Simulated scan of single mutants.
Amino acid sequence: MARQSISFTEPNDEWLKAQVSSKEYSSKSELVNDLIRQARQQQQHIDLVRLKLEKAEKSGFTTDNKDQILADSKYRLNG
């Protein structure tokens, strides 16, 4: 595992210490790694949404009204 030296602002350091003190995480390193994993997952989700939006934009226009679009979206989301 790669080792890094990073600096935190005082409020961020206090928050990290509080999370470790509450036994939520065993160390600051574990917490920072978890935050990075979450950020990476969020970025993947954003990228997927962006791709879907680009595909939708390229597919053209619709004559459906907003209620029809919403109903179709909910159906596709919930199966």
Rank of each mutant, 00 (worst) to 15 (best):
M1T: 06
R3S: 13
Q4T: 04
Q4N: 09
S5I: 11
I6Q: 01
I6K: 02
S7Q: 02
S7W: 07
S7I: 02
F8G: 00
F8S: 00
F8I: 00
T9I: 01
T9C: 03
T9R: 06
E10F: 06
E10S: 05
N12C: 07
D13K: 13
D13Y: 14
D13S: 09
E14R: 12
K17R: 14
K17Y: 07
K17I: 03
A18Q: 05
Q19L: 04
Q19R: 06
V20I: 01
S21C: 03
S21R: 14
S21Y: 12
K23D: 03
E24G: 10
E24V: 13
Y25P: 00
Y25Q: 01
Y25K: 02
S27P: 02
S27H: 05
S27T: 06
K28Q: 08
K28I: 05
K28R: 09
E30M: 04
E30Y: 05
L31T: 01
L31A: 03
L31D: 01
V32D: 00
N33G: 10
N33Y: 07
N33S: 13
N33L: 10
L35H: 06
L35K: 08
L35Y: 11
L35P: 04
L35G: 04
L35V: 03
I36K: 01
I36N: 00
I36C: 02
I36T: 00
R37Q: 05
Q38S: 12
Q38H: 14
Q38G: 12
A39F: 08
A39V: 04
A39N: 05
R40H: 12
Q41G: 08
Q41C: 04
Q42D: 11
Q42M: 10
Q42Y: 11
Q42V: 06
Q43C: 05
Q43P: 07
Q44M: 10
Q44V: 04
I46H: 10
D47M: 07
D47Y: 03
L48E: 10
L48Q: 12
L48P: 00
V49D: 00
R50D: 13
R50L: 11
R50W: 10
L51N: 13
L51T: 11
L51V: 09
L51Y: 14
K52E: 10
K52D: 07
L53H: 11
L53D: 04
L53G: 10
E54D: 11
E54R: 12
E54W: 08
E54N: 14
A56V: 08
E57R: 15
E57L: 15
K58E: 06
S59W: 09
S59N: 08
G60P: 04
F61Y: 15
F61K: 15
T62F: 08
T62C: 03
T63K: 15
T63M: 14
D64P: 08
D64M: 15
N65I: 06
N65E: 02
K66S: 14
K66D: 12
D67Y: 10
D67F: 11
D67S: 15
Q68S: 13
I69C: 09
I69H: 07
I69Y: 07
I69P: 02
A71K: 09
A71S: 07
A71C: 03
A71E: 04
D72W: 00
D72A: 15
D72V: 06
D72C: 08
D72G: 15
D72F: 04
S73I: 07
S73N: 05
S73T: 13
S73F: 14
K74A: 11
K74W: 09
Y75L: 13
Y75C: 10
Y75E: 13
R76Q: 13
L77N: 02
N78Y: 15
G79S: 13
G79I: 08
